[in-house]
Design a protein around this nucleic acid. Structure first.
Length: 255
DNA sequence: ATGGTCGCGGAGCGA
């Protein structure tokens, strides 16, 4: 089982990159974030032509998540149980081939102390409550997506410049740790201990060309899934060439 | 470089 996570920054704008990428890599499951489209306008037929079933949870202009899978998708849950009717579309869960998958687009938070930052921290508390209520750490569960949080300074190209800044602050990391305490492990770190592995680069400062990225897209997996995990790798090739996303895809392989 | 570039939607916001 090979599962990919990729913040595509608009699924419709990224189709010219996404479709050939699917053809090349053929992952069994693909979790997309920032699809930026309502479900009625999701480019489902293009993805079905690539052999994928599609479940989406989107909204106009902002946010939006989707799961593509080459096998049957079951037990789809959109959003959080305590979401309001107009809640931001940031979570979708599904079961594929015995694997429970939760695909997340964690709020960015704007800047430390901002109203959006408080929303981010509260959202992570709601995520933990959702995990406690609807998931079991003894099952094979993969929680993946754009978490908009670095775990530690190995995930930052310039730790001094980002010290206690958004995506790197202690309260964010503590909130992520409380999510992990449900019984999740950072799957990439099973295979790679080194610093300098990044998944996002600021478009405004052409950060990819400068090698100035952060690792904020993660595979968080339960112990049974961690034991089955053979590899987790970032596909930097998807960031080169014409009109890439500002995030790289991450692919995890499971026995 | 307190700037810069995308995407959406058709001005300004979010990232």
């Amino acid at each position: 089982m090979r599962i990919a996570t990729w913040n595509v920054n608009s699924v419709r704008a990224r189709l010219p990159r996404l479709l050939p990428w699917l053809e090349e890599h053929r992952p069994d499951v693909v979790c997309l974030q920032e699809t930026k489209v309502v479900d009625e306008l999701f480019p489902t037929s293009y993805l079905e032509d690539q052999g994928y079933d599609v479940v989406a949870h989107g909204q106009k202009t902002y946010n939006g998540v989707a799961i593509l899978a080459r096998r049957g998708i079951r037990d789809v849950v959109r959003g959080f149980p305590d979401d309001a009717e107009d809640a931001q579309a940031r979570a979708i869960a599904a079961t594929i081939d015995g694997w429970r998958i939760l695909n997340l687009y964690v709020p960015n938070g704007a800047e430390v102390g901002h109203e959006k930052y408080q929303y981010k921290l509260a959202w992570l508390e709601r995520l933990r409550r959702y995990l406690d209520a609807a998931f079991c750490a003894d099952d094979q569960i993969v929680v993946c997506g754009d978490f908009n949080i670095t775990f530690d300074d190995r995930d930052i190209h310039d730790p001094a410049a980002w010290h206690e800044q958004i995506l790197c602050s202690t309260p964010e990391r503590d909130a992520l740790r409380r999510v992990m305490d449900f019984g999740l492990f950072d799957a990439l770190r099973k295979h790679h201990a080194e610093a300098g592995i990044h998944t996002w680069w600021d478009m405004r400062t052409r950060a990819f060309a400068r090698g100035a990225g952060l690792r904020i897209d993660h595979f968080l997996v339960t112990r049974p899934a961690l034991d089955a995990c053979n590899a987790v790798d970032v596909d930097l090739d998807a960031c080169r060439g014409k009109s890439p996303s500002d995030h790289a895809p991450v692919i995890a392989s499971f026995a």
